[in-house]
Design a protein around this nucleic acid. Structure first.
Lengths: 354, 354
DNA sequence: CTCCTTGACTAATACGCATTAGTCCGCGTT
DNA sequence: AACGCGGACTAATGCGTATTAGTCAAGGAG
């Protein structure tokens, strides 16, 4: 009778009020029951059961916005990347991180909201785009270049945020990152153990923390191994043009027997090294040893595995989620560094006897 | 005096009410001004200016939760994949869809909620797992095998859902799909034009709509070209075992000069064909022509491009988003078929003169 | 000198949920 | 007989914004 303008016909999701009607109780009771009755209100077991049943029957799911507004939490974690999360060029994709994020979030009972701010943020560039993340209880950020101003606002207002990748310059912003210093040092140690006395690092001309850390680990390990000498680091803004066969032959003649390249989006430094070695008529690993501080670009998958290390992207994503949920619950996050795994590969071998 | 528990001290961000106080107007006016006054209320320019100034001074930013609550609209689209978790491999076939989904969603001002089999079902076992998607205003579904029962419930309740890939069996479920019938027909027409009189289709033993459609397009095009004859379709449950060099040589001897393989996750049919041709000592395209009804598996990227067609995955994802937003706004979705692009490739050539 | 307009705003309310402060009833106490 | 008390709920309110109905002067029409 009252049934004809009933809830089933109504377009849109069911509300607590509908559940309440069906169960014959008040909206308050529904909220209490579905909220797990944390306030310890005395409820008859039958009532609880009826509410639960009604909720199931209607397929009730709480509205995240309302929940958030009522000063509770959503169980939503945001992911915001400063470039498209799913770019057309798979090499720049954040997908591997997302896999870890996804799993860890699921395990902890959170759903993920992918904020699509930057990708086709046609209009944006205007401020305010970042504010949307407040819909979620907390948010993960990733990308090379961050809009520091906006992010700072969020953080200063106490919004729980975790950046994937080291980010010290923004005070108070939590982050998780790969331990490039240690991973790079390990690569150098391996090369030293193979008898190499002179090792060079080829890096791109960029001051991202990821690059700086590698250089630091590189220099520290050299020093520790007593291999300090002429400046062992080359910055190449355009690796393809600067790391030529001629250049490589010169270094080789000077006694450099191992070359280490930084990994970047494009893999330019590594490509240049490979080309230069080939162009110089040398062979790796018999003549010179090569190592890559990261994973090879996807299109080089067929080539022999480079000696170096793998960035545990999925693990980083998971660690980020742990840090974020830590912020949400206890207020503090755990240790931010994740170790990289050494990858033996086959581009490095014993130093040749000159 | 009332000032000492003032807004500046208050932790958190300014509300419209604070802006209103500073500008000496009502909260309503603030909302109207900052909302761009879409309702065309007459406001004195000075008032508008004062409000804007006050908002700037306080650094006002609207609360997305409140905004969405008031608008009764979350601007959230769900993405649900039926695999246990988001597939780890970037080269997995879902990735390209996501590219289009993200772009189109961003362009339309929607954010994405990512659901996976695991996240949705976490504790509750399987039943009710899908209900979680109600959190979003509408949801995209993708995957080969769908839990029909649960999805039906959602659709019957009027929940806006769009499946990526044809899905007729579930009445009322909207979908977008690639036009395999036409794309396959085009491939056959091209082969016919090259002089092939006998063409065979190798497909896996699966009745997914994607397979059925290709077979239909294949048979129709053959008929139209007047090439009907002995049964031109082989179903292979284990292509590697059934499509052998011997089998291929037999067909070749019978006058079959072109082979067409269906594309699937594994690419098994195509791999088997390639191997069989090679094993039989034949060459494509000089002896036999080969075509692939889809894109080659990633690990065959180095091989010559197969003749065939490309599934416009990103475009499909975008079309799905358009369909879903169509459902949300106007209540009806647009045309569900997306055309595939013919790919000339280099595995098909003129029929040999027998 | 009333009776509309128009301009310029504002009061009230809805959105869906969580929470705080009750209400109501039946049973035992002094 | 008035009183208290625990059990079992519910009414009322707040969160921050967007909207829908007003309100209230100051002019102009009649």
């Amino acid at each position: 009778m009252a049934e004809n303008r009933s809830a089933r016909v109504r377009r849109g999701r069911p509300r607590q009020a509908e559940v309440a009607r069906l169960a014959g109780v008040s909206q308050t009771t529904v909220s209490v029951v579905l909220g797990g009755n944390k306030q310890g209100i005395v409820l008859h077991p039958d009532t609880t059961a009826r509410v639960l049943e009604a909720a199931r029957e209607l397929g009730y799911v709480p509205d995240p916005a309302a929940r958030r507004l009522a000063a509770a939490r959503n169980n939503l974690l945001g992911v915001f990347s400063f470039t498209a999360t799913f770019p057309t060029a798979v090499e720049h994709s954040y997908y591997p991180f997302l896999v870890g994020v996804e799993q860890e979030a699921a395990a902890r009972g959170y759903d993920l909201v992918l904020f699509t701010g930057s990708s086709a943020g046609a209009q944006s560039g205007t401020s305010g785009a970042l504010e949307r993340v407040r819909l979620a209880d907390g948010c993960l950020f990733l990308g090379r270049h961050i809009p520091a101003g906006e992010l700072r606002r969020l953080v200063e207002h106490g919004y729980p945020a975790v950046h994937i990748g080291r980010r010290d310059e923004l005070d108070g912003l939590a982050w998780v990152g790969a331990d490039y210093v240690e991973a790079t040092a390990e690569v150098v140690r391996q090369l030293a153990k193979l008898g190499h006395r002179r090792v060079m690092l080829v890096r791109e001309d960029d001051d991202a923390p990821a690059s700086t850390d590698r250089e630091r680990g590189f220099r520290e390990a050299l020093a520790t191994a007593g291999l300090a000498g002429a400046d062992p680091v080359v910055r190449a803004a355009h690796p393809a043009a600067e790391i030529t066969p001629a250049w490589l032959r010169d270094r080789y003649a000077e006694g450099v027997t191992a070359f280490v390249a930084e990994e970047t989006d494009t893999g330019a430094a590594w490509r240049a090294l490979l080309a230069a070695v080939e162009g110089a008529g040398l062979d790796a690993p018999s003549d010179v040893s090569l190592a890559l501080l990261g994973s090879p670009p996807a299109d080089l998958a067929g080539r022999p595995q480079p000696t170096g290390f793998d960035i545990p992207r999925a693990e980083l994503g998971a660690a980020a989620v742990r840090a974020l949920t830590g912020l949400l619950t206890t207020g503090e996050a755990e240790s931010p560094l994740v170790a990289c795994a050494f990858r033996p590969g086959s581009t490095a071998g014993p130093a040749p006897v000159h």
